[in-house]
Design a binder for these strands. Structure first.
Length: 425
RNA sequence: GGAGAGAUGGCAGAGUGGUCGAUUGCGGCGGUCUUGAAAACCGUUGUACCGCGAGGUACCGGGGGUUCGAAUCCCUCUCUCUCCGCCA
């Protein structure tokens, strides 16, 4: 979330930048400024009275000690009125403070100056295109047919056990999942990411820290009895490792990776988007997260984009990298690059990764700070994350792009992870 | 699930109504000493908000209460630990 003082000091800039995200912030910003001022006034008055109260209390204590009971008792009478005033000022402060907190979470993050103007997906900027488009043989099939033909994924069985969007992977279909997870984790480790295994269920504070709550609870599965949420991405538990933490500047950037299953309710999705592996309620993903110095966070972002690029290239998939326009970006992001791979039988691009710099937006919520050498005060850090990578659409593209009349060829880098299997048939 | 104990600064651990933002130890930082280091000794060492500043306010798990005054007393919630039971 945006810092209140920052909003108060730069109202026009906030309104202007948020217009890029097609968000009209004027009413909220003006309200924030007004409330902020009133809150400060209440705080100042309350604190003045409290200082007086503290002074009186000490005096009364001393009077009792000295045996001057009647003087002490008359001083006590003075405190009655003070107490009332303090109480009412504090109530006012609390009320305004709560209103401010509510407004504060309504404002999205400011987009970086690199963000293209635009309304939706059609306005995203293609910054890189790579890989070779495959030429499929006659009778090539979409991945859901291939999955059935080679007995790799059983969608109906998932429906029976749980419901739509929870497929059962079988045989080589299961093995290639595990192969991809291990491949991605090994690559991340080679690029300096520390591997962790986080919880798949998080509490409210964690959901708030990364920005899923309070607004997007309908996208997460909720365990009502315990008031916990199934994670929609490992970003949530991994980034929350650093909630309420002050790190040393010399340790930045802190690079963490984790595999997790991800759970998304995907309320409102329908049509061809949900066919096969295109959109699932449970899927596997390896995530990379960085905690960065504010001066260096865009270096981190570029590094992460370059890293994800190596992954799709090693898998030999045709891909493109998009810089998301203001209208298509997420609420919490300042700059986002999406990776899409070509799914040759569906003849469509599938999003497989989203790499974002959140700047101080999440870190402000998380109270994630760093301390510079010397005695300077802690400052808010920057956070970034990216999928590296999300499995289902990668699997869909591999099945479709690598299909031959003889079977599905296993990408070279995965063969060692598949016990030497070079073709699935 | 049953019974009990507890939650204090980076960590350990005192503090049961006032001078306690909090004894002390360890760790960290600075210094003395040393060719250098260690040891020893001395000093220093939380965070947030308000204020140009001097300074003020808040924070001893969260919330509420008693009191002129609460880390300390009361209520409540959450969490942790120990033992028993169950179980991967």
């Amino acid at each position: 979330m945006l810092n209140l003082k920052f909003i108060q000091e730069n109202p026009e800039m906030v309104i202007e930048r948020l217009a890029v995200k097609r968000f009209d912030a004027r009413v909220i910003v003006e309200k924030v400024i007004e409330l902020y001022k009133r809150r400060n006034e209440a705080q100042n008055e309350a604190e003045t009275e409290k200082a007086e109260m503290n002074r009186l209390s000490k005096e009364i204590g001393q009077l009792f000690k000295d045996g001057k009971t009647s003087e002490a008792n008359s001083a006590k009478e003075q405190t009655v009125r003070l107490k009332e005033q303090i109480k009412s000022l504090e109530n006012e402060f609390d009320t305004i403070d709560a209103e401010l907190a509510q407004l504060q979470v309504l404002l999205p993050n400011l987009p970086s100056s690199l963000v293209p103007i635009g309304r939706g997906a059609e306005d995203n900027l293609i910054v890189v295109t790579g890989g070779v488009m495959p030429v499929l043989h006659e009778g090539a099939k979409p991945h859901w047919d291939l999955a059935a033909q080679y007995n790799l994924i059983d969608f109906e069985l998932g429906v029976k056990i749980t419901g739509a969007g929870f497929p059962v992977y079988k045989g080589y279909g299961a093995r290639i999942q595990r192969a991809l997870i291990n491949f991605f984790l090994d690559q991340a480790r080679k690029h300096g990411y520390n591997e962790v295994q986080p919880p798949y269920v998080v509490n409210e504070a964690s959901g708030f820290g990364t920005g899923q709550l309070p607004d997007k609870e309908d996208q997460m599965y909720h365990c009502g009895l315990d008031n916990l949420y199934l994670i929609p991405t490992a970003e949530v538990p991994v980034t929350n490792i650093f909630r309420d933490v002050i790190v040393e500047a010399k340790d930045l950037p802190i690079k963490t990776t984790a595999y997790s299953a991800c759970f998304r309710r995907e309320a409102g999705s329908y049509g061809k988007d949900v066919r096969g592996l295109n959109r699932l309620h449970q899927f596997d993903k390896v995530e990379v997260v960085q905690i960065a110095h504010p001066d260096k966070s865009y270096d981190s972002l570029n590094e992460m984009v370059a890293y994800v690029q190596t992954l799709v290239e090693m898998l030999g998939l045709p891909y493109r990298i998009l810089r998301l326009c203001g209208g298509d970006m997420g609420f919490t992001s300042a700059l986002t690059y999406d990776f899409e791979v070509w799914s040759a039988a569906q003849e469509r691009w599938l999003e497989v990764s989203s790499v974002s710099n959140f700047e101080s937006f999440q870190a402000t919520r998380l109270k994630l700070r760093f301390r510079e050498e010397g005695r300077s005060k802690p400052q808010i850090a920057h956070t970034l994350n990216g999928s590296a990578l999300a499995l289902p659409r990668i699997v869909a593209a591999i099945y479709e792009n690598y299909q031959t009349p003889e079977g599905i060829v296993v990408p070279k880098v995965l063969v060692p992870y598949m016990g030497g299997c070079e073709i699935i048939n």
